[in-house]
Amino acid sequence: MPSRPKPPCSRPGCEHTKPCPVHSREANRQRGSAAQRGYGQQHRDRFRRGVLDASPVCVLCRAAPATVADHWPKSRKQLVAEGLDPNEPSYGRGLCAPCHGKVTAANPAQRGGWYAG
């Protein structure tokens, strides 16, 4: 059975296929590492652990275990802009991965990838 052809690069005019060796490096360089964006050791040890300990079940569907610590009601960017500690667990809620994906996709300020617009 023949394999499916790789999709083209999302940059108009680029003849490479995904992952594009030119544009994927450029995007990663602009975005920075997870630690550079604020998701380093303190985030994992303090925020994520604190949120998931406080709400072990997804607060939206109440059916699945919480596996994602979501900044709520303000985003991490908003907390930083207001001079608040974004790693404070009281600024978060526990969500399952499907619910977190839905919430993130519905928020225009948080969309990423091809949907970032």
Results as ranks from 00 to 15, higher is better:
A63F: 01
W114H: 14
G92W: 12
G38V: 04
A69T: 09
R31V: 01
L52V: 04
P12L: 13
C9N: 04
Q30E: 13
P5A: 09
R111A: 05
E82W: 00
D70A: 02
P7Q: 12
K102P: 02
S33T: 15
R29W: 03
A105I: 07
A66I: 01
P65A: 11
Q42T: 06
P86R: 07
S3E: 15
Q36L: 05
A35T: 03
A97E: 13
L79M: 07
P8W: 09
A54F: 03
S3H: 13
P5D: 08
Q110F: 01
A69N: 07
W72V: 01
Q41G: 01
P12E: 13
G94T: 05
E15V: 11
P21H: 08
A105P: 06
H100S: 04
W114M: 14
W72I: 02
V51N: 11
R29Y: 06
Q42C: 00
G94C: 04
P7K: 13
R31P: 07
P7Y: 09
G50P: 12
A81M: 05
W72G: 00
A69E: 09
P89K: 12
L60W: 14
L95W: 09
G38S: 06
G112V: 15
V51E: 07
R29M: 06
G40Q: 12
A35R: 02
L60S: 14
R29F: 02
G50A: 13
P12G: 15
A97K: 13
P7M: 10
G113I: 05
K102C: 09
H43Q: 09
H16L: 03
C99K: 10
R111Q: 11
R62V: 06
A66T: 03
V57D: 12
P108F: 05
R44S: 00
R111Y: 02
H43D: 03
H71S: 01
A34C: 09
E88R: 11
Q110E: 08
A54G: 07
N107T: 14
P7F: 10
L60V: 15
G13C: 12
Q30F: 03
P8I: 08
Q41H: 00
Q36S: 11
P86F: 08
P56F: 07
A27Y: 01
D85P: 04
D53P: 06
R37F: 04
A106T: 06
Y39E: 04
H16A: 04
E82I: 00
S3W: 11
T104V: 01
G92C: 13
